[in-house]
């Protein structure tokens, strides 16, 4: 009996390390399994983010997940009284949820930023914006990735 357990355990360990090594190469395993929900909850302090105001521009299909162009825009007057302060960007299918956090100031004039991100598999990218009045807004976009980009 002991032998059976040992063998099972050995197989389980083998499978787990294989998965870690492959990382982005296993979409089924990665999907929804990371810490993105916790990151959003921590960012909003448990508040619900309403849809709208935030715009995420990402390609519908990314041939190379190693570098996916992303443009983030938040519709805001960007005055001292009413502006966007922080925007959290997460992905639900990467080994880790976090992508970036942008910090805008009224001195910025426009809440717009662009960068290139890594996506390990086909998944949703979610942006949550914190406004100066304490409310949260969000947007989500699905990107189909043909070649994973997280160390695979």
């Amino acid at each position: 009996m002991d032998w059976t357990i040992d063998r099972r355990r050995a197989l389980a360990i083998g499978a787990a390390s294989a998965a870690t090594a492959a990382l982005g190469g296993l979409p089924a395993l990665a999907q929804g399994g990371n810490d993105h929900k916790e990151l959003i909850a921590k960012f909003t302090g448990g508040k619900t983010a309403a849809p709208g105001l935030v715009k995420l521009d990402l390609p519908e299909i990314a041939e190379n997940g190693n570098t996916v162009p992303m443009v983030l825009t938040v519709d805001s007057p960007m005055t001292a009284a009413s502006h966007v302060s922080d925007v959290l960007v997460v992905a639900d299918g990467n080994p880790r949820g976090g992508i970036a956090t942008f910090h805008f100031t009224p001195a910025g004039g426009v809440a717009e930023a662009s960068t290139r991100i890594r996506l390990g598999a086909t998944q949703n990218v979610i942006a949550v914006a914190k406004l100066s009045d304490g409310s949260f807004h969000m947007a989500s976009r699905q990107v189909k990735v043909t070649i994973g980009g997280c160390g695979g």
Binding site: G98, V110, G149
Partner: peptide
């Protein structure tokens, strides 16, 4: 800009190699 922070960002490993950033200021 002239000593005042206009934009900042925190990056995670999910930012592509040779990080590119574009933003605007007034």
């Amino acid at each position: 800009v002239n000593g005042k922070v206009v934009f900042s960002a925190d990056f995670e490993p999910a930012i592509a190699a040779n990080p590119y950033i574009q933003f605007k200021f007034k």
